[in-house]
Design a protein around this nucleic acid. Structure first.
Length: 641
RNA sequence: GCCGAUGUAGCUCAAGGGUAGAGCAGCGGUCUUGUAAACCGCAGGUUGUGGGUUCGAUUCCCACCGUCGGCUCCA
């Protein structure tokens, strides 16, 4: 073996070292700061502990907390420390898995008694002790069998199960820090003392291996940082995020409510929310018309036979509200989806290949019986309105249609101010309908569309619907949780079940391809995302109330009335506040209601035909002529192209 | 559905085995105001629902319902 290795740093510089040098030594040779921050290294794409000797030259990176990978290592190591603390305080607890997640880490435990808030504090205290002891993370490699018997001896049944799945004869790695040993690929931080600041955030139930058939374990979530100030920032941001929660803002801005007497997951849109919804719907309809969609309106209920044909009674029954029946015994179901109705319109007459593609769109209300534990404000409800469309096309039109829908979707989401999307391709699940060739074709079309647009996407293997593959776009809520809005789904099921066809060029009946798609997802969910995205500070085109006219005193009410009427006439959503309250009070109320503009009028303004403009975002803008204010507000109120 | 937490006035919250209190909002009045809260007064609650323990429950226990954080599932 060559005893010199050459390592290439990310900036391109190449350094030569004696083989067997460790990441820690290299970091130290580069700088003391880096040496302190170094968590692990990456050699030719392989992550290694900082203490591991390196024998191989090539690409080399040092991971710190500034890298996502570094954060993960840091958090994962913290989860080990938490597990050790739990085992020290609660002997007999079994450990399951403890990975890093997007924001922090968790560890799953099996223990008869629930962990209380007080237990979490005790665990934190114990963790602090472990950090102070500065336990070193030590890797050791063992034959799989040896590891397995070690966990068996310790009674760690979950680790035994995991180790048992590793092929016989393979080597596994274990990490020991302090008194805790875990089956783990690593790498880890060098020692516990680097974890300066941490907090345990919550306990929740979680099924072993994510299956509800398995035992429910207790999952403790936590977060950690190299510096106390970073933890404080994180907790501060968490607090701020709560202020943006659509449920809180929904109440404060009087947008919507959910009433227990009516039923969980059933939404009441108050005027302020309804105005915004109406604007969204109007914009949506215009854009769809421009994109060649045809509007349809269809009923909310349908006979049971319809749902038998569509397959919903077989595949989707658990999510449907129970049937309604007439005396004669005929059963009807409230619809959970709109597709069978759009299909019925398609089938209403014979279609030619020349007619395709046909794109039917509808803001269609649907009701789904969601399990009680999953309801979540407007983000997950039982009654909602899908911005639905079904595209019937020829096989040769498929790719263009998908590209079209995908671009349309991104464009419309961007119009509403969203920029940061999670894009997912979901492929064939275990149980599926349709032949494999069609699946391959359709998946190819989706990939082609994704590649054409060029945004990065993740593949959710096996995540497709039983009837076809799909592209999903997700946006984040205030707490960083992703919620699916756009979905573009192929359907091999329904064209078959409903016997859809068109007359092809050759005069033969041919089955069309069918795409279901929702861009905003549902108006309820999308609205929730929108509220959180803007933190309730809606842009002018969406704001339920755009301007509030506030006379300085009651002497100027008549002039305020004139100004208010001019705003209304110019098409602006204006209100006047001439209550006998102090001006400061009325301004404050308009501010907390997040009204974009206030027009304050007094003696000076009346004399000059002007108003003093105050913006919610920028405060007092000074007096200006009414025409100028109207021009400004109107130009800001234009919906996106 | 499952695990845990939780439910007090319209809202935000306090108290607590002897039938509940504040601020804001509301209502009535006074004030007539120059860029984020004028002042005084009044009214407002079978403490989520139903059981149980108790001389007495809003407080303790049980069940149910809702909500919150997760898991599973999903627009």
């Amino acid at each position: 073996m060559n005893n010199e290795i050459i390592l290439k740093l990310p900036d391109g510089t190449e350094l030569s070292f004696a083989a067997g040098i460790t990441g820690a030594e290299i970091a130290a040779s580069i700088g003391a700061g880096l040496a302190r921050a170094a968590l692990a290294v990456v050699v030719n794409g392989k992550k290694l502990d900082i203490s591991a000797p390196i024998f191989e030259g090539g690409d080399f990176r040092i991971l710190t907390f500034d890298d996502d990978e570094g954060k993960h290592i840091f958090w994962h190591s913290t989860s080990h420390i938490m597990a050790e603390a739990v085992l020290r305080l609660f002997p007999g607890t079994k450990v399951a898995i403890g990975p890093a997640i997007e924001q922090g880490f968790y560890y799953d435990f099996d223990r008869a008694e629930p962990f209380t808030a007080g237990d979490l504090e005790a665990i934190e205290t114990e963790m602090a002790r472990i950090v102070k002891e500065d336990a070193v993370f030590q890797r050791c490699e063992l034959p799989r069998d040896e590891a397995l018997s070690r966990f068996e001896a310790a009674g760690e049944i979950y680790k035994v199960e995991l180790a048992g799945e590793i092929p016989l004869g393979e080597t596994v790695s274990l990490y020991t820090s302090g008194t805790f040993t875990d089956l783990c690929r690593g790498p880890h931080v060098p020692s516990a003392s680097i974890i300066k600041a941490f907090k345990l955030l919550s306990v929740a139930g979680a099924y072993w291996r994510g299956s509800e058939k398995n035992k429910m374990l207790q999952r403790i979530y936590g977060i950690s940082f190299p510096k106390k100030s970073q933890l404080d920032d994180f907790l501060e941001k968490l607090e701020q995020a709560k202020a943006r929660d659509h449920r809180k803002l929904g109440k404060e801005l009087d947008l919507f409510s959910i009433n227990d007497d009516i039923g969980p997951g059933l939404v009441l849109w108050h005027p302020n929310g309804a105005i915004i919804r109406e604007i969204i719907e109007t914009y949506w309809r215009r854009r769809h018309r421009e994109e060649g969609y045809l509007p349809v309106y269809t009923p909310l209920v349908g006979r049971s036979k319809l749902w038998e044909t569509s397959g919903h009674l077989g595949f989707y029954n658990d999510n449907m509200f129970p049937s309604m029946s007439f005396e004669e015994g005929e059963q009807y179901f409230v619809r959970p989806m709109n597709c069978p109705f759009h299909i019925a319109i398609y089938k209403n007459k014979l279609r030619s290949y020349r007619d395709l593609p046909i794109r039917y769109c509808e803001l269609g209300a649907d009701y789904r019986y969601e399990r009680s534990g999953v309801l979540h404000g407007l983000l997950r409800v039982r009654g909602f309105t899908m911005d639905d469309a079904h595209i019937f096309c020829r096989p040769d039109q498929m790719i263009d249609e998908v590209v079209g829908v995908y671009e349309f979707s991104l464009n419309i989401l961007r119009s509403f101010g969203f920029k940061d999307f999670g894009i997912y391709l979901s492929t064939r699940p275990e149980h599926f309908v349709g032949d494999e060739d069609r699946w391959a074709n359709a998946t190819e079309a989706l990939v082609a569309a994704l590649q054409k647009v060029g945004l990065p996407f993740k593949t959710d293997v096996g995540g497709g619907a039983f009837y076809g593959p799909k592209i999903d776009i997700k946006v984040r809520d205030a707490l960083g949780r992703e919620w699916q809005t756009t979905t573009v789904q192929f359907d091999f099921n329904e064209p078959e079940r409903f016997g859809l066809n068109y007359i092809g060029e050759n005069g033969e009946k041919t089955q069309p391809y069918m795409v279901h798609r929702a861009l905003l997802g549902s108006l309820e969910r999308f609205f929730a995302c929108l509220v959180e995205h803007y933190a309730g500070n809606f842009p002018m085109w969406l704001a339920p109330l755009q301007a509030k006219v506030i006379p300085v005193s009651e002497k100027f009410q008549a002039y305020a009335e004139i100004v208010h009427k001019r705003l209304l006439k110019a098409g602006l959503r204006s209100e006047i506040d001439n209550r006998p309250e102090t001006m400061g009070y009325r301004i404050r109320e308009a501010e907390t209601a997040k009204v974009p503009y206030m027009l304050i009028v007094g003696e000076r303004e009346e004399a000059s035909g002007s108003a003093s403009l105050r913006s919610h975002s920028d405060g007092d803008l000074g007096s200006m002529p009414i025409e100028k204010i109207i021009d400004r507000l109107n130009s800001e109120s234009q919906p996106p192209a």
